[in-house]
Structure formats: structure tokens, C-alpha cells
Write a protein that binds this DNA or RNA. Structure first.
Lengths: 262, 262
DNA sequence: AACAGTCCGTTTGTCGGACAATTTCAATTA
DNA sequence: TAATTGAAATTGTCCGACAAACGGACTGTT
């Protein structure tokens, strides 16, 4: 006898339905971004469920970035900024034991492309921002060469900042989104390398070269310099004798710490 | 009288602290993946808060992918699969009115790189999977050319599947993650183009060429063919006279529909 | 031994009500 | 007009309760 295949019966809990309903209202524009969310009691009445159920639904919205709470004020409708997703992406990649090789190969694809499009799209404001970053890094490097005590932390932040400004200037949000987890995952490795090999000046010089290419709107040269810059990173990585295919360490990345919320 | 400036007091709500605490336990490995979450009452006792508060915290975990519910069973600890993030990424990009130009430029960067690394890393299983995909598409195309009624939907799914298999075969999860939102956002555009220009066979042929490059482990050629394939897509897009810089339409992407959960 | 049926403790989903703390907003006062 | 105040609205949290579903243990049938 032929057995009939039944499709699984799904019973979504009410709080999920609340989530879906409100999400739909937001995405369709009937609830506008920036507006405060209707009061919980009001929602409970409209949906015909208890306030607790509504609250659970709102928690889902909150975590998905569609609702933002500022202190004890009324929660507001908001659009999740695409870069906010990057931290989740980083976490997921870490938890799946992504290797440095994967990270570096991806950045060899992304960074030159970003540099290229940055050179094509950069404007005065972008150049100024990059210049400020380079100045700050310059001061930082000079401080290093003077004293023994080095603020590696600040340097790495500036380094990351430079690449992020480039991604922003490039104007391609898809690439910027793809790029963001990479830069954030590079941070701990960058710190190790800097401390061991003292490559501060070399990094700064590379950034200067890239900046100049942008000023000249020379996309091809910007790509080349970025390529060289990233390859430098690889060479430094090899010199420190870190393993290519070992998964990035969760602990050194500080993801075991509580996440900070703005 | 000089008024002292107090820094803002931040009081995270208790449900957020619950979320943080449990997240920490998971990320540190003290709660292992696959294990059921402790009972709500138990958690409430341990944290010294009410069960409702615990439940709200669990909703946050749920949405962040760290806890998975299967029917009415005990929720389990789980790791968010990195590709699961892609749908949130797609949504965020849509909501920020990303343009087709950005999407296409990003894919011109990602797809050839993926094809290249796929050619380097492909194994027999991967080749078989790609072959199956191509066979299915072949059948689909033949059906088109026989009857007037075309199953564009199935074709586009297969098309997307081919590119996703490539990304998987390439073995770089960072690139795969970056790539995923792009393919999913291309779907509606792909459907429009196919219906208007009937480019089925041309797509299939391109996939065949790429497949052959992979079989020969010719990375450079795989890159070239993919590049050509994507450029074809651009040309088709231009022929349909769709706007380059218009934001992708949220409605046609179906993101106003309730999300499906597995 | 394999299987269906039954019972029961546990756990989740949902409800109703309650109250303190904080925000909102309009009326009041300086 | 601008600052203040006070009441109403709203959120965060707690408590207690109950139905429904699940997980096992136990039992009886074939």
C-alpha cells in the first residue's frame, strides 16, 4: 500500500505571528521609520493577545534591528543599518572556525576592488577624511619611534578606520557590507603582527600611496597599491609563523565578552 | 552655581542582561551546541528574575540564531549558520535602496573570484553536484523550447543554485557569505530578463563552459568565463531598459511577505 | 519482542492582573 | 514666553494560573 506523505503541520506561536505582522507593517511602509511603535496594550488589543505575548514579539523585532529602544523611551521603528549586520557575520564566521586563509583570500578580492572604486568615486570630503586618518596615524607612528611604549591598539583602530573610509567612499554598499566582517576579524591578527614586527611605518606608507592614487583618481594604481599592501600583510603573517589554516581564535577576538549596544 | 555634569546612567533592562548572560555561556562553550536550553523556571531562579523576563531574553537569543526552536520541543542551543545571515543582509540592503549598479559591480568582483577558487578546489562530489544542476537546467530549457509555457521560476532557482554550489565548492566561507545576498537579490531581475529576452540557452551554455573549466581545473579560464557570463547579464539588463541606479523594488522581491522559518 | 495505549510530571505558550519607574504632554506658574 | 508641575500614558517587572504538548515509564495486547 502506498503511504501518503503528509507535509509537516506548523503551528507558529502567537508571539511569532505578532512579530510577522508588525514586520509586514514596517516593510510595507504602513508603519514608518522613526515613528514610535504603538503601545503594547494597544497592540495586544488589536491582535487579540495578551500584552506579554506582544512583548515577546517585540523582542524579536528588537533583535532583528527593526525596532530600536533608547533608554526607557518608546521604542521606535528603525531600519537595520547594513553594517550592523557585520558583527553578527563576524561572530558566525568565528563560530564556524573560519581560517585566516579564507579571510585573507577574501580580502585580496575585496580590498583592491574597493580601492579601485574609491579612486573613481572619491570627493573632497572623502579625501579630507582619509587625510585626517593618515595624519592621526602619522602622529601615532612618531610617538612609537620616540618612546618604547607603543599604543598598538590605537594604531590598529586607525588602520581599520582607513579601510572602512575607503569602503564608504567607494560608494558600493554591497561591497562595504561584505568587507566589514573581514576588517573586524583582521584586528587581532593585526595587533599580533604589529607588536612583533613593528611594521607601523610600512603600513602608513602604503596608506599614503593609496591616498595619493585617490587624489589623482588613478583607479588602476590604487588597486595595485592596495594589492601590494594586502600582500605585505600576508608576508608579515608568514614571518610571525602563524598558521594559515588554523581557525581564528574566539577568545583573542573578545567575542566572549558581552556585546556593547549603542 | 556650577552644575556638575553627570554622565548618563545606563540601565540595561533585565531581559537584556539575561540575553547577555546566556549568550556568554554559549560563546564560551559552557553551554554546548545542541544541548537543550535550561528550563525557563530554572533560569528565572538562577538569575533571580521572573519567568516572563527570562522568556523575553530567550526571544532575543532566538532571533539572533543562538537558540533554535523545533515545534513545541525544548529550545536547543545552536550556532547561527553564516548563510542564514544573508537574508537579513538582503533585507537591509533592500531597505537602504541599494541599486542594481551596486549589486552588479559587487558580483563582478565576487563571482569571478569564486569561480576561480572553485576551479582550484573542486572535487568529484562538487563536479557531480554541478552536473546534476546543469542536467536539470537542460531539461528545463528543452521543455521551454517545446511548449510555450515556461517555468521561469524553476529556471531561476536552478541558476541561483549553480552559483551557490560554486561558492560552496570554492571553500571560502567569507566569500560565500558575501556572495549569498547578491544571488538572492538578483532573482527578481533574473526573472524579468528571462521572460523578456528568453536567454535560457545562453545561460545554460555559460554554465556548461564554466563546468568544463572546473573539470579541467583551469582557474584562469573559469574566471574568464564567469566574467563573460556576468557581463552577459549586464547586457541583458540594458536591453530590457531597466534603470541602473534605481533602487531595487522591495515588493517585487517579496520581502513584504512573512519570512519562512525552518 | 514489538507495538499501542495510558498515565503523569515537566515545560512551554498564553493569559490576567498588578505596581513602580519613567516618559509625555498639557495645564499652570513665574 | 519660558520654566515648572502634575496627571495620564507607557514600559519594565513581577506574580499566579492553566491548557497543551512533550518525554518517559508503565501496562497490556498481539
Amino acid at each position: 500500500m502506498q503511504e501518503h506523505e503528509f507535509s509537516r503541520i506548523e503551528r507558529a506561536p502567537a508571539y511569532r505571528l505578532v512579530y510577522d505582522a508588525i514586520e509586514r507593517e514596517i516593510l510595507s511602509g504602513r508603519l514608518r521609520v522613526g515613528d514610535p511603535l504603538p503601545a503594547e496594550l494597544q497592540l495586544a488589543e488589536q491582535f487579540g493577545v495578551n500584552r506579554s505575548t506582544v512583548r515577546e514579539g517585540i523582542r524579536l523585532l528588537e533583535q532583528s534591528g527593526l525596532v530600536e529602544r533608547d533608554g526607557g523611551k518608546r521604542p521606535r521603528i528603525s531600519l537595520p543599518h547594513y553594517l550592523d549586520l557585520a558583527s553578527s557575520a563576524s561572530r558566525a564566521l568565528i563560530l564556524h572556525s573560519v581560517t585566516f586563509r579564507e579571510l585573507w583570500e577574501a580580502s585580496m578580492v575585496l580590498e583592491p576592488a574597493i580601492a579601485e572604486s574609491a579612486a573613481r568615486n572619491v570627493d573632497d570630503a572623502g579625501l579630507a577624511e582619509l587625510h585626517a586618518n593618515i595624519d592621526a596615524m602619522d602622529a601615532n607612528v612618531k610617538a612609537f619611534e620616540g618612546s618604547a611604549e607603543a599604543d598598538t591598539d590605537a594604531f590598529v583602530k586607525l588602520d581599520r578606520g582607513f579601510h572602512e573610509i575607503l569602503a564608504k567612499v567607494g560608494g558600493n554598499r554591497v561591497l562595504a557590507l561584505a568587507h566589514e566582517p573581514v576588517t573586524s576579524l583582521f584586528i587581532p591578527t593585526g595587533q599580533i603582527i604589529l607588536q612583533r614586527l613593528k611594521t607601523y611605518r610600512r603600513v602608513l606608507d602604503a596608506h599614503r600611496h593609496i591616498y595619493n592614487c585617490l587624489k589623482d583618481k588613478d583607479a588602476a594604481k590604487a588597486r595595485t597599491w592596495m594589492h601590494r599592501h594586502m600582500d605585505d600583510f600576508r608576508r608579515a603573517y608568514e614571518l610571525t609563523e602563524l598558521a594559515w589554516d588554523a581557525p581564528l581564535d574566539a577568545v583573542s577576538l573578545g567575542i566572549t565578552q558581552a556585546t556593547t549596544y549603542r
